[in-house]
Structure formats: C-alpha cells, structure tokens
Write a protein that binds this DNA or RNA. Sequence first.
DNA 1: TCTGATGCGTC
DNA 2: GTCGGAC
DNA 3: GTCCGACGACGCATCAGA
Length: 860
Amino acid sequence: MWLDPHRPRPFAFVSHGHADHFARHQRVLCSPGTGHILVKRYGVKASKIEALDWGEQRIINDHHITLHPAGHITGSAMIRIEGPDQSILYTGDFKTRSSHTAEIAEFPKSDILIMETTFGRPQFVFPPTDEIEKQISRFACETLEDGETPVFFAYSLGKAQEALAILHNAGIETVVHKTVFEMTQACREIKVDLPNPVLLEKNIPPGVAVIAPPNAVRARAIRSHKKRRTAMLSGWALTPGSQYRYQVDQVFPLSDHADYPGLLESVEKVSPSLVYTLHGSTREFARDLRAKGIEAWSIYGDDQLELLESASPEIPLKSELSRPTSDLRGLSELLESLTTTASRLKKIELLSIFLQDCNDEELPFVTRWLSGSGITHLGHVMIRQALLEVTGFPLAKYKTVSASQNDTARTARLLLEEAPLNPLAHSFKEVATHFDQLRTADGSIAKTQLFSCFLQQCHPAEGETMVRLLTGGLRAGAKEGLYEEAVAKAFNLSPSDIRYAAMLTGDLGEVAIAAKNKTLDQIQLRPGKPIKPMLASPSENTEDIIKWHDSKDIPLWLEPKYDGIRSQLHVTPNGAHLFSRDLRSLDNEFPEILEAARALPSCLLDGELIAYAEGKRLTFFDLQKRLGRKKIQGDLFLGAAIPVRFIAFDCLYAQKSLIDSPLEERRKALESLELLDPFTTIPLIRSNGTDIKALEREFKKAMSDDNEGLIAKNCLSSYQPGRRGQSWKKLKGVMPTLDCVVIAAQQGHGKRAGVLSDYTFAVRDKESGELRTLGKAYSGLTDNEIEDLTDHFQKTTIEKISRRVVKVEPTIVLEIAFDKIRPSKRHDSGLALRFPRIKAIRSDKSLDEIDTLQTAKKLV
DNA sequence: TCTGATGCGTC
DNA sequence: GTCGGAC
DNA sequence: GTCCGACGACGCATCAGA
C-alpha cells in the first residue's frame, strides 16, 4: 500500500481530495468524505474506493489500520498503521486549529510519525483564526461599501468553503466560481454545514462577494470586471512579497495547514520516538526537533508548488532594503504604471512625459529599450544562472518559484527579495554600458557573471526591470505603434510623421532624437538602409478578394505567393546588401546573390528568396538550410547544392524614392531594370477585378504551381512599410484537416499561466493500434474553450510527465487544420504539421473515430 | 567526440 | 507562420 | 481595422555533460 503517491498505483491511501495528493490508483483507501470528493472531483468510480470510518479498524497483512481526522479539509485523514512491533502515523496535510468545514484533528500516540511540515519554520505563527476571519469580513464589507466587488482567491476545495462560511456568517452575499460551486455541493452532500452556493454566471452582480480558485485570476468574468478588489487566502500571506507574488490587493493568512506551534504541539501529542518530515521546511523542522531531543529526519521532496521559503533573519527584508532614486528606478516605475493601466491614451501620456525627461544622449537608447530593440537578449537559462549566483539559492528553489510564476522577470524579483543585495543608483548611461558589456561578453559564463554582478547592485524591483528588458518580454501592453504615438506626443509632432520616419529607419530611437531636434525631414529612404517590408492581410476566399477590390475600372493585380524568405535587396555603388523581414542582415548567408547584384544599378528591391535548382523550385526547408550560417565556410558547396534566386516584386528606389508612388509606377521601374538570373521579376496577372471565375482559375493555377497562394494588390496604392495594411491581400489554399485526440496538456506562459493551454495530439496507428503523436497546438481556441478544457484535463489527468506537462486520458477529439504535413523526427508518428491550428473541438466524435496514421501519411 | 537541450530566426 | 482578444 | 501576445515546426549554432 502506498501513501499519497503521485503516480497511479494498485493500492493507495489518499489522505484528502487535493490534486497533489491524488492519482488514478486501481484501489483507494480513504475516509468516506474523501471518497465522495474523489468521485465528484475526479470522476473516480465508486467501486474503486474503500472507505474507512473514523476509528474503524481494518486488518491488512496483520497490520491494524485506522483513520483519524486530520483537520486539513473536509474528509482529510491521517492513517495509523499498527504492526506487531511498532505503530506508524502518517498525517497527510493537517492543521490543529478548528475550522468551519474540516473535522477536528486527532493525534493518536504512535512510535513513528510521518508528518507534513509545510510551515515548519518558527516565523510561521498564524494569528488567531477569529482575528483573520474578522479581517476578511471587514475587507469584504468595506469593498462593498465603496461600490466595488471583493474577489477572494482560495483553493476550490477546502479554503473556498471556509471563505464561504466566513462570508455567510458575516451576512455577505456570495457567488462562487464553477469549480468552487461543484466542490461546495460535494461537501454539502456529505453533510458539511454550508450555505447553498450561488454560481457565478457571466457577469458579477452588484453587491456580492466572489470566491474563485487562484487559477481563475485570469478568468474572463473576473478580469473584465473592472471594479474589483482582490484578496488571496493563503498561509503564505506571512511571507514577504506575497501580495506582489499573487498580484492581489490583499492577502490573508488563512491556512489549512498547521503553523509552527501547531506542528510542535502535534508532535508532542503523538509522542513518537522517530519523526520523518515531508513538504516545505522539512530539514529545518527536523533539525529543530532533534534540538529538542526527538530523533527526526526529512524525507526530501519539495514538490509543493506553492512552497516559498521565507527570508532567513540576517537578510534584510524588502521593506528594510533601501531603494535608491535613479534613472533605472524611474524606468521600473514607468513599466509598472504601463502594466497596470489598460488605457492606451494613458500609456501614451506616461511614456511621452518620460521621454521628454531624457537628454539627447539617453533618448535614442531609452526609446529603443522600450520599443524592444537595441538590447541583446539573454535566454532564461543564463538569467536563471545569474539569479542563482546572486542569491545563492539552490536550483530547486528557483524551479519552485518559477513554476508558480511562469514569468522569468517576476521570478527574479521574488528571489531577489530574499537575497543579500546592495542596491546602488544606476543612470541610463550605466545601464546602457552594461547592456553593451553583455552584448560583447564572450560566452554564456562571462555573460552570466556580468549580469549577476549587476543584479547584486539592484533593488529587486530594478532587478525585475533588467530581466524584463533582457528577455524582451516587457509585457507592458505596448509595442511599436504605441511608442510612435508617445514620441509624437512628447515632441509635439504628428503621429503620422513619426510613423513615416520610423518606417524608413526601422529605428525608433533615431526617430525620437530627430523628433526632439526637429530634424525629422532629414530621414529619408536610401539604398543601404533597410526599411520594414509591407505585409498583406489575410482573406478567406476569392469572394472576399472581389469584394475588397470592388471596382470595375481598376484592374486587379495578382502575384503568386512563393514559399521562400522575404527579403530586401539594396544595391548601392559601394556594394549590395540583403535584409530579412525583420531587418536582419542576410549578407553572410547569400554572398553569391550580393556578388551578382553588383551588375545592377543603384536600387532597392523587395522580393522573395527561393531555392531553385535544375529548373525546379526546391522547398522552403531546403532554403532554410542556408539560413543562420555564421561562417562563409562551405558556402560554395551549399550555394551549389541549394542555389537561390531572388524574385523581385517591388521596387522602392530607382534613382529616387518610389515609396509614395503608386504600385503601377513602381512596377514600371522594376520592369525597366530587366533583371537577369539569379534575379527575376515576379509574374504579374493584371486581371479583371470583377470576374470571380477568372480569379478562381488563377488561384488554382498558382496552387498547382506549388505556390502558397496568391497576393492581390491595389495597383494604385503606395508602399506602406511595416504595416499589414489593406492594400495587399493574401489568399492561401484551403487547409486539410485531421481529427486527432489529445493525449497530453501543457501549462501556458504569461496570460496563459494558470491554464493548460497547449495540447499534444495523436492519431491512431492502424497497424499497432497505438496512438502516435503528430504535433502540438493551442491556436484556434477561445479563452473560454481553453478554460473548459483545462478543467476537463485536470479531471482526466493520468500522470504528471514533467513540471508543466500532464498526460491525460484520450477523450478530447480536435479537428486540426494545417498547411503541410511532412516527415519529422520530433514526434513518434514520424510526421509533423506545418502551421497546426485547432479548427474545432469535435465533441461529437469519440476516440475510435479519429484519423489514422495511414490516412495522415497519404497527405504527405 | 558525440548528444541533447536551449536559443534564435525563418516560415 | 497561426490565432483570439482588446481597443 | 489594428495591435498585441499567446503559440506551432524547422534548421543552425552553442554549450554542458556523457
């Protein structure tokens, strides 16, 4: 018999109904209350459950087994196993204080005690429960009086019911999230004295409090409710930074675990001769017991997601740490306000004021940092390493914190708050120098070292900002467009002028300084300086294209959409250059193209690089082999094996800038260049803009020529760099689909951190009968669908594969659309999809109706 | 020296 | 590349 | 309509660890 095992076992004791203590065992021993919860929460078959009443005795292999209330949540039990020589008590999770929904804990005397020590450090002393309850009620009342909604986050089983009882006793009307609703009903069914719960519908009615599980922080009904004040109910409220960690307005230390005095008290009652400790501060608590003359050892395994050790006394807490006023601090504070305000206008206002305060030297690079360029990024592995160096924490601790955050920057801040730091003031210039050093440092070890030294001199908040900047994940809800408007506002210019200049340079920093000095008009297009390519908006079908064109008099211009690499060819008297879609230089990768371009006059061409050999186009994957190469070495060989052509479809400069000229004129300029191999001009179809049949024919032809589809262009439009405007439309082929079953689900990042957002799907191999994975997808589902699926997958989890991934029962059939299917080593089907997306959740289909590997292979 | 994990940039 | 959500 | 941030597979480079 296993005790609370994480993996499915033939026979296991399950102490209570929380997910971290449960797996799909063949037979389960538990209290009747827990048994009922397992049925309701995880859909466990009642026949698999062997319930044992409090004090009732069972004999298994000559051992007397009894269960005793643990006081953690409804039904939570300790198990006592008495053998011929000695007795063992395993506590599961427990608490010593009384509560509204859990039975009062009993501590039978035993020789060996295996106990949980989640809060096994002396600083964990919870205030009296009635005191906490009063605070909670007061928070709810005050919030309601202010016309706002109090929202409590609490585990859906246990804490949520406590909260419901507390609010009910205080006479506060409460609505609860779906999972809380279900768990409350389950508790009521086993005679726990709780008010009838009211389910939270789409919108929160006025005058009520809300109880939701912590992972509903991002649920739509709650997020969209602006007038809310949030509170987290957790014992971790006692740790520094918890309010920040949970991103709530308030935290209350309402806990279902024993605090430090409670742990000691329970050891005393059991009076064991040997203690093993589990969860949380296992080593510390065992050490404390040994100091009292009780033999005690920790069983390693800090598998509790929420675990966060508190600062040791010699390290100053966050509040005591000085936070020097500095440029960097200003930037931190700016980012913080940007993140918290949803209003676009407000963000622009904040940014513009900030930019006005920068001097000429700072302005360009600060603008670049904010708009996400000009910083070499550090990967999260290097950042993790630097954090471990500064804090001296073990990797396990990083992982625990990171698992609860899913955000490197926030993880950094939490860890730094417990680290011995020496915050100094940092000017922008110093920060810029540091970024430079990081960029030029050789190797990841040197970079890590540099960064950890810098972090040591940062206040945690500034450390977080540095990490945000270095990971590029500002998550401030602002990108290019908004920054352009901010620059315009800061220097009193029109946003369109700023945008135009930004299009030309692709460097907002340069634009900002020009704006400040009123020299914007000096920014002009010229070959050698890359500009952002114009993009096409997608359209559904040929009908859309006709509707969009909407003209009898103007021809509809069509070009095939090649499957290559978008690139810009700049030819100047001093040499030629190639740039990629995001303005990276491709010069090293395609030297033979540059060589050939020397024969061309000065010009700037927009086009597509494609792989082409022996009169035939090769695939994108062939072409990709030539990307990312650092050394020119072997280029001769590669150039021969995978020759490349540049297919030009636009000309932005020929003697003068043609950016503002209509496409017609640009095309003329392009044709007058009379390009020769390896340069070609894209075939152009000047079609009648009203004949849908003709359009269909052209589209079919483009597809049968192995193109991705067609690009439709308005021949009178100017070139709009960097915008996915309406002057160009793309039309792609109808995608094939396969019906697949989900076999694993993965936790998301950022705004998808509380949900299982990413699904591994599989098809059936007819030969072996096995399921074979084909790929992963999330794209295509709405937030609500993801929430529902998360719920479903939590209930149908078979086992935890890794920190983020769970294996689930194959119950959900998805219709997966994709562009192409091809052989691959990534998945065990030996196939992979290009651009997979979820077209539909096929709840009408069952596992035996999914597509087969053999069908999939035919589509290759 | 090889391999797998990670980062980065292309679609 | 894909997509949904927010403004 | 437009921007933004969640994500897919693939190929090359780099680095840690076998």
